[in-house]
């Protein structure tokens, strides 16, 4: 004979990633490393911003490393390496986001005892990374004026759950007829506690403000 039973489980599927993220942060803390993960759409300028910050910090004698996350290829990884810093590449293959487990493996490839700052560049995606914290100290979301002035309204969650919001490619705002104030207002509404910074990564403008927003 058979019977029907209802079993209470209480298993949180997303908590496994959060637990690994906490472990990543503890590992970084043990080594005194401050880490930042960069989110944003494809082509928003995440890689170039990180490259600029690496150069600035290197000039100040700081030791940096970067993790490049992409669906395929090692283009960003090679760009980071060309700045003379340790780098690790993560090709997600099929997944639309990095997760804490992938970052954990990338950390194994980096000289953690010899670092001050770590930058983690996520897959270009404004939706999925929201559900997968990686264990970094601050989350940075980068948008560029070329994405249009309704970008924040279309993807409120990623802005709500980030610490720093960067509006990049400021030099193109006039050509694009995009009002950066509109972007900033939307960003502040989505997340009143976030810091908003305007940059022109190509010309290296706004980087000191970005460093300050990151607490560096």
């Amino acid at each position: 004979m058979h019977k029907v039973v209802t079993v209470e489980v209480e298993k949180d599927i997303l908590s496994a990633n959060r637990k690994l993220a906490d472990e990543n942060m503890s590992l970084l803390d043990e080594h005194g490393i401050r880490s930042f993960d960069f989110l944003g759409a494809i082509g928003s300028g995440k890689t170039l911003l990180i490259e600029r910050l690496i150069d600035l910090l290197k000039a100040k004698g700081k030791r940096c490393a970067a993790i490049a996350g992409d669906v395929a290829g090692d283009d960003d990884f090679r760009r980071f390496e060309s700045h003379g810093v340790p780098a690790a590449n993560i090709s997600t293959g099929k997944e639309c986001h990095l997760d804490a487990h992938l970052v954990d493996h990338a950390l194994e490839k980096l000289p953690l005892h010899d670092l001050d700052y770590l930058f983690v560049e996520n897959v270009g995606n404004l939706v999925c990374p929201v559900d997968f914290p990686l264990g970094s100290h601050k989350r940075v979301v980068v948008i560029s004026v070329t994405e249009g002035d309704d970008m924040v309204r279309k993807h409120p969650a990623i802005f709500a759950f980030s610490d720093v919001i960067v509006i990049n490619k400021m030099d193109l705002s006039e050509a694009m007829q995009v009002d950066p104030d509109a972007l900033e207002n939307d960003a502040m509404r989505a997340n009143p506690a976030a810091k908003v910074v305007r940059t022109d990564a190509r010309r290296g403008e706004g980087l000191d403000e970005l460093l300050a927003a990151l607490g560096i």
Binding site: K3, V4, E8, L14, P192, A193
Partner: peptide, 24 residues
Amino acid sequence: CGGGARTVGGRECVIRDIRMVVPD
């Protein structure tokens, strides 16, 4: 107060319970 708040709940995905047929 209009200030910036932080989320404390609503980011989970939980299997609450399962009804199944088992041998008696």
